[in-house]
Structures are given as C-alpha cells and as structure tokens.
Design a binder for these strands. Structure first.
Length: 787
DNA sequence: TAAGCCTTAAACAAAG
DNA sequence: GCTTTGTTTAAGGCTT
C-alpha cells in the first residue's frame, strides 16, 4: 500500500510536472508499468517488457522494504510517520532521489542482511536505475535544467555517499553472484548497469555542483540580495525581488521551488540532512517522504519565502503564479528564452555583463553555458557577488542621501520661510523666498539675470549653490581681483513695487552659506556696503547699522572687526558713491547709484567714462548741460544693458517699474528715473519726485520727505516713461549740482521746503567744496571730453 | 609695464 | 580721556 501510494505519487508527480516531452511520457509509462505489478496490456510490447522487468523489481523492492520495515530501528519508516516526526525538518528535496529510491542506508541494510536473492537485488538495482532514469527523464531539457536544478550541499554529500553505497552494493552483488551459473552474464549485465548508473550519477553530480552553486546563491539571496532592486534591464515583477547575480528570475523561482517544495526526508545513519543552508527550517506539508522529488505545483514551502520576504500572501500567490510560469518556460526549453528575448541581467548585447567579464556570447544558450562555466560558484564569483552587493548597497545609500538632499534643497527653495528681515521694510537681499522666486517661478524669462555686461558670464541662478567654488575662491588669500569682479560685474539689483531685491548671482544662492560659514564673500567692501544700504528700507544706514549688517549677513565679519570696520569707513569715505546724509538722528549713509554705476561702467568699459555728477563745477547751471551729462552718464552706465532686449523688456515684468534694478533704462535703482538719490522728478534742482533713499518721498523725518512711499512708484513710473521714451533720462533729471548745492548748504537747517532749500538735504563732509573741487579737477577733463 | 582697483593698515581729527 | 565716526594716505596685490 505504501509503495503503491508512493509510486503513484511519483507517477502523478512526474506526469504533472514533466509530462510534455516524449521522454517524460516514456518514463511515465515506465513508472505506470511498475504500479502494483499490473500489466498494461494496452501498452506496446516494449513497454510490456519493461513492465515485466519493473514487476520483478517491484516485487523485490516490496519484499525488501517489508523486510526492512520489520527491522527495529530501521531507517526506513513510514512516510507519514516520518513526516509526523519531523514535520519541520524535512530535508530539501533530493531532486534526483526518487521516492522509490531506497536510501543508501536501506540499501546497505538490505545488503548486509542479504535478504534478497541476487536476482532480487539485481531487480532492485535495476529498479533503482529505472527510477533514476525516470528522474532524469523528468527533466527533458537537461542542459537548462542542470542550471536550475537546485540541491543542497548536504544532498551532494549524500549523493556521494549514495554513490559509494551503490558501488558497494554492486560489489556485494558481484560477490553474491559468483556462485551462480549465470554469474558472468549477470555480472556483465550489472557492469553495464553500473556503468549506466555511474553515468547517471556523474550527471547528477554535475547537477549537484551546480545545485551547490545555486544553493549558495540562494543563501546569499536570503542574506541580503532579496532586497536588491531589479536590474535596469530587467523588468521586475511587482513584489518580486531581484535574483542573485547569475540567476534569472525564473531560475530563482525554480531554485526556491526546488529547495522548498521538494522536501524529502533523508536519513543517513540517523543523521538528518537538513539541506537548506543557513539553518532555514523548512516546513513542508508533503505528507509523504516518498513524494515526488520534483517540486509539486502546490509547493507550500514557498510560504517560507514569503515569510522571509515579509510579503503578503496575496503577493506571494501572485508571485508564485509568476514563478510557475517561469518554471514552465524554462522547463519547455531554452528556446523560450531566446524567443522571449533572452532577457537576463547579466546578458546584454551579446556580452556577459558579469562584472569584469564582458565575454562575448553569441546567443543566450552560450551565455548560460558561459555563465555556468566561467561564473560558477567559487570564491571568486562569491567575492564578486559580495562586492556587487556592497556596490548596490552603497549606491542605495548614496541614492537615499542624495534624495534627501534634494528634498531638503527643494524644501528650502520652495517652502522654507525667509530669514527674519533685518529691516522693517526688507529688501530680500538673498532670502530664501527671493531665491525661490528668482530661481523657479517669478523670474521673468525675458529678464536674464545676467551681469551688467553682456559679455560677462552668466551666473546661473538656478544652479545649486556654488559653495565649493566660492569656498575655494574665498579661501584664496589674495583674491581681491576676483572679489572685485564678482561684486561689480555680477551684482545686480532688482526692484519691484518698492520692494527692491538685490541679486548677487554669487552670493544670493549662498546667502545661508555666508551667513553661517566663516568665509569671506567675494565682494568688495563697496559692493557690500551698497548692498547693505540698499537692503535697508529707506536706503540709508548709519555706520553702525552697516556694521550690523555686515556681521549679521556674513559670518566672516564677525571677527577682525577692527580691520574690516576700518575698511568700511575707508570705503565710505573714499568712494563718492557713498553719500553721507545728516538728519536729526545723526548721519546716515546712502548710495549714489549714479556714482556707483559710473564706477562700474568705468570698470566694465575699462576706461574712464565721462564723469558727470559730482564733477561738474558748481558754477554750472542745472540745465541742458547737466541733462546731457546725465544722459551721457546713463547711457554710459547702462549701455551694455540697453543693448540687451531681455533687460529692456523687463519693464513689463514689474521690476522696478519696468526696469531691471540698477538698470531701468539706464537708471540704477534708487535713482528713480536716473536721479541719484532720487533727486529728480522734474525739478531743475532734481529734488522733486521721490527718493528711495528717503531724501524725498519716504525720506526720514525732517528730510523733507513729504512724498509718501506710494508716490514713489508713480514718480518712478513717470520717470521711467521718460526714460523709456527718451531712451535715457528725463530732462531736468538728476542734477549733480543739486547735490553739490546740498553740500554747499551743508550747514543749512534741515527742515526746508522742497523747492526752496533742497540743498539742506545733503550735508556731507565728503562733498565739501574743497574736496569736490579736487575731484572735479581730477575728473573734470573727462567730463569735458563727454561734452 | 603701467594704470586702476581693492584691501589693509595707519594716522589724524572731530564729535559725543 | 575714551570711543566712535570720518577722512586721508600709503603700501601691496591683483587685474586689465
């Protein structure tokens, strides 16, 4: 009964699993013929012959097993009992070990006890061989199946032992058959059988080797490769894990099935062979130890894989179906590989993609051979695989880090609120919000954020902070020139609706960087001072406020205060673009953008442009000559930008009333239509209109600032209209002489009417008549050249 | 090589 | 008297 059951199991299993090929069909017939000794009269004569043989074998085998079962302590036990006793330690299927195959131990017992006649032994041996052949036939496409035939190392050892036992059995058979009359014939026959058996064993040993490799890979997979992402060229199924290198998904699936599904008890001298490496406790529901060696369709042990992977049962079920399909594909031929494109992570473009290999393989089959031959499981391949694992892990880690960084950057640029504004009316020097707007969305496409020179290199604002370069540049001890160039050529100012935005293409993206890093910003003191002043709400700062701005904005200026403060004072005094203005609260510093742009234009053009504003003799009037000078100055300062359609078109971008900051048709920001200090607005003295500096509208108290800030824009727009119309500036615009006049009336009371006493606005020691005269003498000729 | 710019350092003066 | 603010000069390095 047991044997019948077991045999039927074999038959069913082999049929169900293998039954497509003719070979397997034949094997099935052979197997079927062995059932119960029933003769199948409807079979062919060949089958009948075999059937007879198998009948004898069965009888012998049955007798032997019954005998063994009666032996106490015999290793041959009821399959059910066996499973019951060791439900969790069923060794992985010994793929080639048919349930019918008597274990070596059993065989040894049979031999030792000599319970079988030589004929019976021979029949038994033949039956063993037939079973082995059946198993062999069960894999019609051996070449491919060799690769996918998984077994454990223990199984291999067991097989070796089995082989030895077979040899020993054969020797004993020979010894027993010596007395026989037909001993020679039988011996010859047995020798042939033995040769066939050995051939089978050799083939199986080869399979065992490959199985061993794959088992090792399987272990590696369990140890970590399961989480590997699919290779780029490999379309991974959802929830499917990447197979270890060298195994296709189908192979991996086959591996799992063979390892977990074909549970087979095998006892060898009482030593159980738990096949799965790594101590994996496989649970199999195979009810019989003699069940098919081949994995059944319903391989419950797959659940182990599921558990190991932490996948849901549904997912596993789906994956199981996928694996089954893959298995069938592999089972039915390698051609499917080729037909299906022979996709393999390690194979592409006819080249083996094994790390460091790149061997040319004409077809997929050749590749598989190459894979099995050249990249068999050895120390080298294992090491390479481990290295690859590490590479993948490192890349994953790196990817994770980079992704986090990207998210942080995006979060910073898009969502993070800006730093607390230093002034009540912040101008967003380089705040995050400003950067976000400039970088991503608000920046008008026709306003290239370029330096004031078309030829100057564009510093992409959209790029990530160029901290490294700045770091390197800033750390260079002598980098004055570079700093100078950055500050003067690349700095740009944007203004929109009274909210001026300064953009230092270099510093802006690195605002936070300079704020926290003790790195000197690559800008001149003049540029920084101007920046600080322009950033203030009313375009003016006291010296102390400038100091504060420096320390607040740049970590670098939080030390060596004496040095850089002296430099700041020096620059404030030295550069004419910085105008000292006294009010009731004391002296504040403003920026004469005209001067500033003039300086820039001088540097840009590489020659001294006609100096205008402050250099005109005070005796000159404010009329056409001044206007011409102003126009010339504007043309000079903004010439590079005027030639830039993008910049000129920016007037529609809401920037500074239509003008790029510092450009605005030639007028820098803060000049409001070409008037430095906002001293313009149609007044011959240039003191009308509004002044972003607070000298006029929005001016500090006592500075004749009657114009509310809201008027500034209209005035600005009007001025801009003029500028746009004229191309440069409005007539009666900025009057340097007005500025001069203010110097002259330095000591005048401050609260004067706009029209009457504009001079009272500006009192600066910088512009004492003597000093200005000196400067005028210095630059007067150049001004005349312009005229 | 010269001119110019920038930085740094220093001296000096005035004002608070 | 000290500190802060402002001006001026000089020197050195760098770029153009």
């Amino acid at each position: 009964m047991m044997q019948e059951s077991a045999t039927e199991t074999i038959s069913n299993s082999s049929m169900s699993q293998n039954g497509m090929s003719s070979l397997s069909s034949l094997c099935s017939q052979l197997d079927a013929g062995s059932r119960d000794g029933r003769s199948s009269g409807d079979t062919s004569s060949e089958v009948s012959t075999v059937e007879l043989l198998h009948l004898q074998q069965q009888q012998a085998l049955q007798a032997a097993r019954q005998l063994l079962l009666q032996q106490p302590g015999s290793g041959l036990k009821s399959p059910k009992n066996n499973d019951k006793q060791r439900p969790l330690q069923v060794p992985v299927s010994v793929a080639m070990m048919s349930p019918q195959v008597i274990t070596p131990q059993q065989m040894q017992q049979i031999l030792q006890q000599q319970v079988l006649s030589p004929q019976q032994l021979q029949a038994l041996l033949q039956q063993q061989q037939a079973v082995m052949l059946q198993q062999y036939c069960a894999r019609p496409f051996k070449v491919h199946m060799e690769k996918t035939w998984r077994e454990s190392e223990t199984t291999q050892h067991l097989q070796e032992f089995y082989k030895k036992q077979q040899e020993q059995l054969h020797l004993q058979l020979l010894q027993q058959q010596h007395p026989g009359k037909q001993a020679k014939e039988q011996q010859q026959q047995h020798q042939q059988q033995l040769a066939a058996q050995q051939l089978v064993f050799q083939q199986q040993l080869l399979q065992m080797q490959q199985l061993q490799q794959q088992q090792h890979l399987l272990n590696m997979q369990r140890q970590g490769l399961l989480s590997l992402p699919p290779a780029p060229g490999q379309a991974a199924l959802p929830g499917q894990t990447m197979p270890p290198a060298g195994l296709s998904p189908a192979e991996l699936q086959q591996l799992w099935k063979d390892v977990t599904g074909g549970g087979h008890n095998m006892e060898d001298n009482g030593i159980k062979h738990s096949v799965v490496g790594g101590g994996l406790d496989l649970t199999t529901t195979n009810s019989s130890s003699t069940t098919s060696s081949t994995p059944s369709k319903a391989s419950p042990p797959i659940s182990h894989h599921s558990i190991a992977n932490g996948q849901s049962p549904a997912l596993n079920s789906r994956r199981e179906r996928e694996r089954e399909r893959e298995r069938e594909r592999e089972r039915y031929g390698n051609s499917l590989h080729e037909e299906s494109g022979a996709s393999h992570s390690l194979y592409g473009h006819g080249v083996c993609k094994w790390p460091g290999c790149e061997s040319v393989c004409e077809d997929f089959g050749q590749f598989l051979k190459h894979l099995n031959n050249e990249h068999a499981l050895d120390d080298r391949s294992t090491a390479q695989c481990r290295v690859q694992m590490q590479v993948v892990q490192q890349l994953e880690i790196q990817l994770s880090k980079e992704r986090e960084r990207l998210q942080a950057m995006m979060a910073h640029l898009h969502m993070r609120p800006s730093e607390p504004k230093p002034s009540p009316k912040p101008l967003n020097l380089v705040s995050s919000v400003t950067m976000s707007k400039n970088l991503l969305s608000v920046s008008p496409p026709n306003v290239p954020q370029t330096p004031t020179t078309p030829s100057a290199p564009v510093t992409p604002m959209s790029q990530v902070p160029q901290v490294p370069s700045l770091l390197s540049a800033a750390n260079v001890p002598s980098m004055g020139a570079m700093r100078r160039r950055h500050s003067d050529k690349y700095s740009m100012q944007l203004s929109s609706g009274g909210d001026t935005v300064f953009i230092f293409p270099e510093i802006a993206p690195n605002y936070e960087f300079y704020k926290n890093a003790d790195v000197r910003p690559p800008f001149t003191y003049a540029t920084l001072i101007r920046q600080g002043i322009m950033e203030s709400g009313d375009m003016q700062l006291t010296l102390n406020e400038i100091y504060s701005w420096f320390t607040r904005t740049f970590a670098y200026f939080r030390r060596n205060a004496a040095t850089w403060k002296n430099a700041v004072r020096h620059n404030l005094s030295l550069h004419k673009c910085f105008v000292r203005v006294e009010n009731v609260k004391g002296a504040v510093w403003t920026v004469d953008e005209m001067e500033y742009q003039k300086r820039r234009s001088q540097k840009i053009t590489g020659c001294r442009s006609p100096t205008l504003v402050k250099n005109l003799p005070s005796s000159l009037g404010y009329g056409a000559a001044l206007n011409a000078s102003l126009q010339a100055a504007l043309a000079e300062t903004s010439l590079p930008l005027l030639g830039n359609p993008g910049l000129m078109n920016s007037s529609s971008s809401g920037l500074m009333g239509g003008s790029p900051p510092g450009l605005m048709g030639g007028s820098p920001p803060g000049m409001l239509g070409g008037s430095p200090h906002g001293l313009m607005g149609g007044s011959p003295h240039g003191f009308m209109g509004g002044s972003p500096h607070g000298l006029m509208g929005g001016s500090p108290p006592g500075m004749m600032g009657s114009s509310p800030p809201s008027l500034l824009q209209s005035d600005l727009n009007g001025s801009l209209d003029h500028l746009d119309t004229n191309g440069h500036s409005s007539p009666g615009g900025y009057s340097p002489q007005a500025h001069m006049q203010a110097i002259h009336v330095k000591e005048e009371p401050l609260n004067m009417d706009d029209d009457d006493c504009p001079m009272s606005l500006v009192t600066t020691a910088n512009h004492s008549p003597e000093l200005d005269d000196d400067r005028e003498l210095e630059e007067g000729n150049l001004s005349d050249d312009l005229e």
